[in-house]
């Protein structure tokens, strides 16, 4: 099935953890997969850093809410990670079954982003639904819920596209434009262009695909690449951020790392 003429999506990887963003990512990925009839691949990465830490003799852990310090041991961490993996698998199974998707799930151990990108080599689309290293993103959940209580229209949350004119970004543009159109959502294009002339050119490219006459499209110029994208995405309360995956794995790792750090919505990487 094709999303646009030249994009064929057969497999979608969804990288997960047990955070709220994980659940949102599963939902987004499952909907996407259902729309394009793709196979859903779930991935849970056991963080090697944690396991190593737990192996150190002096390793201690400070409770998130209790603020109490307690010893950290390898077996306990391993068990906790396994439990998280099982929980994530259940989440994925439920979403996939609801949408009647083919799905699989695997657990790997290693550096998180590297592992995700490694597995991502064999898929067409990556949905990342993991909490980054940011502590605030974890602690912030409850407060946000409070403010959003009674909120009537999640449909108003837009899709955000990060666009820099590259080949993967063009694919991301086509995917995002179509998704926004079908879901009746606004598309916010964050155009990474330090120069105004470039911005105009890229903007025309965006509007050629996502016609402002047919759907709601807003473009923003982003000068300093990543940080601004993140702030912009949070400012418009993006439901999903769609971007092209950079070709080389190093810059991809940095990009994903920093986006995960700063954002609180699932990330869709188009390859």
């Amino acid at each position: 099935m094709t999303v646009a003429d030249d994009i064929v999506i057969r497999r979608i990887l969804v990288a997960l953890d047990t955070s709220r963003r994980g659940a949102a990512a599963v939902r987004a990925a499952a909907e996407l997969a259902a729309a394009v009839q793709a196979e859903l691949l779930g991935l849970f990465v056991e963080d090697i850093n944690l396991l190593r830490l737990a192996d150190l003799p002096f390793a201690r852990e400070m409770g998130l809410h209790s603020a109490a310090s307690r010893p950290l041991d390898f077996a306990a961490v391993e068990q906790a990670l396994r439990a998280q993996a099982a929980q994530v698998e259940r989440l994925l199974a439920r979403a996939a079954e609801r949408q009647r998707l083919r799905w699989s799930f695997q657990v790997t151990r290693g550096q998180v982003v590297a592992e995700v990108l490694a597995v991502a080599r064999d898929v067409d689309l990556v949905v990342v639904g993991k909490a980054g290293r940011s502590i605030g993103a974890r602690l912030g959940g409850a407060g946000h819920r409070e403010a959003a209580r009674g909120e009537a229209v999640p449909a108003r949350r837009p899709l955000v596209l990060v666009f820099d004119g590259s080949e993967p970004a063009a694919r991301a543009l086509r995917l995002a434009a179509r998704l926004a159109r079908e879901a009746g959502k606004a598309l916010v294009a964050m155009i990474a262009a330090p120069k105004n002339a470039d911005y105009q050119r890229l903007r025309e490219q965006v509007e050629a695909v996502a016609d402002p006459a047919r759907q709601r499209v807003r473009c923003h110029q982003v000068k300093a690449a990543i940080g601004d994208v993140c702030r912009g995405a949070r400012g418009v309360r993006a439901e999903l951020v769609v971007l092209g995956a950079p070709g080389d794995s190093r810059s991809a790792q940095e990009l994903v790392d920093s986006l995960l750090e700063a954002m609180d919505c699932p990330l869709v990487l188009v390859r």
Partner: peptide, 13 residues
């Protein structure tokens, strides 16, 4: 480094 553990935080060399 300040790291997440499944139930809290920890410091790791």
């Amino acid at each position: 480094a300040l790291l997440h553990t499944p139930t809290g935080f920890s410091f790791a060399p």
